[in-house]
Amino acid sequence: MDWTSGQLMKTRTDWEPAARDVGGSLASVAYVGSAIGGPNCPAGADTGELFFAVFRSDFGASQFPVVRWERRGNVRDLEQVDITRRPKRSIHEGLAILRKMREESLAKDQDKLERDWLAKHRQQYAGQWIALLGDRLISHSTNPRDVFAAARAAGVRALVLRVEDSELRFAGW
């Protein structure tokens, strides 16, 4: 097998048998060698060493997922295992997958922070328009125009909404 340093080898779903024993963390992708860059990238030569990029799912308010590199043996060991391999991906495809995963993680984290903030402060701002980014309140007013203007001035893509009264249930149409 012709393995190239930095090559994305498997996604978690591609390589489920090895991903199972990573524990509580979310094992996302496996790389061969070290040429994938980044400050936390493990050092090493193009020796066929296999690394997992393990994303912690609980990175919380840091806004950035924590990546830990784990050595997972050598690709030659895997070749002896009876698993079906999909076509190899280029480093560019691998990095694109990582970028997409990071964007999705950030969006999910931001969405959770905003939902938690709304659950906590709904009564306080009921009936008002608010601009919210994560758990940061950018503006609030009864005039939506002022709130949109403040969000624009802050230069962020804030969630803007009118906070509903939490006592009322939605009856549909």
Binding site: R157, L161, W173
Partner: peptide, 11 residues
């Protein structure tokens, strides 16, 4: 714009 919306199969 970012906002929240309800899913309503009756609408």
């Amino acid at each position: 714009v970012r906002l929240e919306a309800k899913i309503d199969t009756g609408a």
